[in-house]
């Protein structure tokens, strides 16, 4: 996890207008990985670039920048969304989670991360942070998601290396662990 609490400064004047006034830059308040953040951002700044360039959270990858590949997926108020299709300013007041929030300070992996490791659900790893974030949201649901819902979530991510089978196996491993095997009560 990074120690960043204040975003890197932007070469903008210091009194930022509120969101209710049209401006090319705004003061933004949000929570990223549990830490409150205050930052001045340009209106056109994408959330993906805010995370990577201003907060140095480079675990979130950027592939296509038009919503197709899913590499940039992060959780906004618990829901997986494309950070390349979200303006940073539109996240005022939101609570964000990125891949950096998963493993703890000692490097202890979450069950989703561990399953990706154990099932060899990655090769080059470019797509992995996105998959892991969507899967994290999925396994936090109160009920076991149906097989079709799993396929639906995974369809929102492209992987050029693995062929998806091992990714599917990793998700199933976590779902079986958390909810019991499909069709069985745990």
């Amino acid at each position: 996890m990074t120690d960043t609490t204040e975003a890197r400064p932007d070469p903008l004047p210091s009194a930022a207008p509120p969101l209710s006034e049209p401006s090319s830059w705004h003061e933004l308040h949000l929570t990223v990985n549990g830490r409150p953040i205050r930052a001045q951002v340009e209106s056109r700044l994408l959330l993906s670039d805010f995370l990577r360039a201003r907060l140095s959270l480079t675990g979130t990858h950027v592939g296509c920048e038009h919503g197709v590949c899913g590499a940039c997926t992060v959780l906004v108020d618990g829901e997986p969304v494309r950070s390349c299709l979200t303006l940073a300013v539109a996240c005022e007041g939101a609570s964000l989670r990125t891949v950096e929030s998963l493993a703890d300070e000692e490097g202890q992996l979450t069950d989703v991360q561990r399953a990706f490791h154990e099932q060899h659900a990655m090769q080059c790893g470019f797509c992995t942070a996105g998959f892991v974030m969507s899967c994290t949201a999925m396994v936090e649901a109160p009920e076991r998601p149906a097989e079709d819902e799993v396929a639906d979530q995974l369809s929102g991510h492209l992987c050029r290396c693995t062929g998806y089978r091992n990714i599917r196996a990793a998700v199933e491993q976590v779902l079986d662990d958390r909810y019991g095997k499909a069709g069985e009560e745990k």
Binding site: L19, S20, P22, S43, R44, L87
Partner: peptide
């Protein structure tokens, strides 16, 4: 692949939004 500069506003009411439009 980055947007050209623009101003952004997030009004809290419909009349305000219509005024900006």
């Amino acid at each position: 692949m980055k947007p050209a500069p623009f101003d952004y506003v997030a009004p809290g009411t419909l009349p305000e939004a219509l005024r900006f439009l």
